[in-house]
């Protein structure tokens, strides 16, 4: 095959990368809020799975994809609250409690699916929305402007997150609580309150990310996310706790996955080596980090519960 990098292939890969990136992006953005305030939630994947099931089930029952998305966001909100109780109030070790949340979500979503649905029934998916004018630009339109509404919304959330974190009082409190909780507390900022808020944001975005995944695929299945939540956490580190960086990471991850897939379809990657190719996203993430991460520092209070007077 000689026509490896035809424009059409590139266009298809970019469009596919964007689709693959969106659930990661939403979940990572949510996790960014949490980590900037000093809370690591390793249970993102579990929340995504329950969000995915809830979103799927809501669409199945109502036929309305937006109700499904809302349902995912709401269940995520509740799980975010639970995460906050565990991590903030009970001051549990965050690296481990998250694994519990993950396992709970993994098992519970599958259990609910088997009991309430059983055999997979397809649901409606988000309709494609072509952006007027822009979508008719050759190539560019197909790559960027022929997606479903949630994809545009997800990317619109990036500048919004930047604005909230960098320009609002709430954002300032988040950063303060994540870096110097003692100082923030002295200044009258409720450390627990801010952390509860970021966990609620993070939980609902993770739940929403799961719902987006399920409703985009039009189906639910056991372990639908296949570990996407863990990758989303990795992307927060990758993106150096900044929404733009997180977005770049999600897109890069999506792009490499889409590219490997396309190269397999075109039979450029020999089938015997396809497993080695599938390692690429993980290895590239590590390498990029090894060269870049030293320049950025994690929020100083990350994973540290706060106790007044300590």
């Amino acid at each position: 095959m000689s026509e490896v990098f035809t424009v059409a292939v590139l266009v298809a890969v970019v469009a596919s990368a964007i689709r693959l990136a969106v659930p990661l992006l939403l979940a990572s953005l949510g996790e960014t809020f949490g980590q900037r305030s000093g809370v690591l939630n390793l249970g993102v994947d579990g929340i995504m799975l329950l969000g995915a099931f809830t979103g799927y089930y809501a669409v199945l029952k109502t036929g309305n994809v937006w109700v499904g998305l809302l349902a995912g966001l709401v269940i995520g909100l509740f799980l975010g609250l639970a995460s906050a109780v565990i991590a903030v109030t009970l001051k549990a070790e965050q690296g481990i409690s998250g694994i519990g949340i993950y396992l709970f979500g993994l098992g519970m979503s599958d259990l609910l699916f088997q009991k309430l649905v059983g055999t997979p029934i397809p649901i409606d998916t988000f309709p494609q929305v072509d952006v007027p004018i822009l979508s008719s630009i050759p190539y560019i339109g197909e790559m960027f402007f022929q997606h479903s509404m949630v994809i545009y919304l997800a990317f619109a959330a990036v500048p919004l997150a930047m604005f909230v974190i960098n320009r609002t009082t709430f954002g300032m409190n988040i950063r303060a609580v994540g870096e110097y909780p003692e100082a923030a507390d002295t200044l009258g900022v409720s450390v627990a309150g801010v952390r509860y808020a970021t966990q609620l944001i993070g939980g609902s975005l993770a739940g929403g990310a799961g719902a987006v995944l399920a409703i985009s695929l039009g189906i639910f299945q056991q372990n639908l996310t296949n570990g996407a939540g863990f990758i989303a956490i990795a992307l927060v580190y990758f993106g150096a706790w900044r929404p733009m960086g997180v977005m770049a990471g999600a897109l890069l991850f999506g792009f490499i996955n889409a590219l490997v897939l396309e190269l397999k379809t075109l039979e450029i990657i020999p089938r015997d080596l396809s497993n080695l190719a599938a390692m690429a996203p993980a290895i590239i993430t590590i390498l990029v980090l090894a060269f870049a991460a030293g320049r950025f520092k994690a929020p100083a209070a990350l994973t540290k519960p706060f106790t007044r007077g300590k």
């Binding site: 694994i99 993950y102 993994l106 098992g107 519970m108």
Partner: peptide, 14 residues
């Protein structure tokens, strides 16, 4: 379903 055991495992951890 085996899923219950996974969920239970998660609860124990939490």
């Amino acid at each position: 379903p085996s899923a219950l055991i996974v969920a239970l495992n998660g609860l124990v951890v939490i």
